[in-house]
Design a binder for these strands. Structure first.
Length: 293
DNA sequence: AACCAACACAACCGCGGCTCC
DNA sequence: CGGAGCCGCGGTTGTGTTGGT
């Protein structure tokens, strides 16, 4: 007996989300939280699959989503993390506050991948392309490594490569499969000794104390994906900010600012304008402030 | 101006893992 | 312990936009 479809595909709408659907989803989640994605569309009056709602929320509508291009520092961090973690985008995204796995994945596939190839670096193994021909047999084992768990021990196949270890200590020991102290040097988390450019890039990131503190520090704000626990409110008063907890107000002011790009007025949240008047900091300014603290 | 290729990104799909019964 | 249901992840596709010819 096969798995049931996640939703009734006959009656479910697909394709791009409309403004009205976004509005409904935001309203519902802000009011009720997302206790159960499967039943959410029905309760919210949406003809969408629960998965689709979750994706739309987490990748686009969620208040803490940071929009816009990745900064150079973020990009370098993605490269560093990819060298360590492989295509585990959600893990990588967890280290970049406000960025989603989908966004990072897209950026990787469309931009970083090509950039690395241009630099002569294999985007999969992070090894220089020119020495790869000579180490084809290693590559084969490397591809296996990509799927292995951290307990797998590769038998000394990387004598000619150095490990990027500098910032490994900053990983949580609980970060699954990223127990660097126990992980053997491998193609997916290693660089060639001859690849000075890449080493320099990584070093520049790792040696940037301010940046590392900001991006890796224990006190960095963590994404909180727990369901919203807001007091039930009238739909008409959803953005009566004064009625919300101060922490929520502060945290979500960035998102409200971002809504300008989207067209907050299109949501019918007219009260935003009053709120905007007292909020003079841009998203980037606030992000900078967070880094400095 | 029209066409086409490349690019960027939102969204879909299927599978694996976790939890509950 | 095993099956069912759900969520989240990663790969892939679809679509709109941009730039070049």
């Amino acid at each position: 007996m096969g798995r049931q479809p996640c939703c009734d595909k006959q009656r479910v709408k697909k394709g791009p989300w409309t403004m009205d659907e976004d509005k409904k989803l935001i309203s519902f989640i802000l009011t009720n939280g997302h206790c159960c994605w499967r039943s959410l569309p029905k309760l919210a009056g949406l003809r969408r699959c629960g998965k689709s709602c979750r994706l739309r929320w987490t990748n686009y509508l969620r208040p803490d989503v940071k929009r816009g291009l990745l900064t150079d520092a973020e990009e370098q961090l993605v490269i560093e993390l990819h060298a360590r973690l492989g295509n585990r985008w959600s893990k990588i995204a967890a280290r970049l506050p406000g960025r989603t796995d989908n966004e990072i994945k897209n950026h990787w596939n469309t931009y970083i991948k090509k950039k690395l190839i241009k630099m002569g670096i294999d985007p999969v193994t992070h090894e220089p392309l020119n020495i790869q021909a000579a180490t084809d047999h290693q590559k084969e084992s490397s591809s296996r490594i990509a799927d292995r768990t951290s307990s797998y021990v590769e038998p000394a196949a990387e004598n000619n490569i150095i490990q990027v270890q500098k910032s490994s200590e900053t990983f949580d020991s609980s970060d699954d499969s990223v127990n660097c102290s126990n992980s053997p040097p491998s193609a997916e988390n290693s660089l060639s000794a001859g690849d000075d450019d890449q080493s320099c890039l990584i070093d520049s990131i790792c040696n940037d104390d301010e940046l590392m503190k900001c991006l890796w520090g224990d006190d960095q704000p963590q994404l909180d994906d727990s369901p919203w626990k807001l007091p039930a409110a009238d739909h008409g008063n959803l953005f009566d900010v004064a009625g919300l907890p101060a922490a929520w107000e502060e945290e979500n002011s960035l998102w409200l600012l971002d809504c300008q790009d989207f067209g907050i007025q299109d949501f019918g949240f007219d009260r935003f304008n009053e709120f905007e008047a007292v909020n003079t900091l841009s998203s980037t300014e606030l992000a900078d402030k967070q880094c400095k603290h």
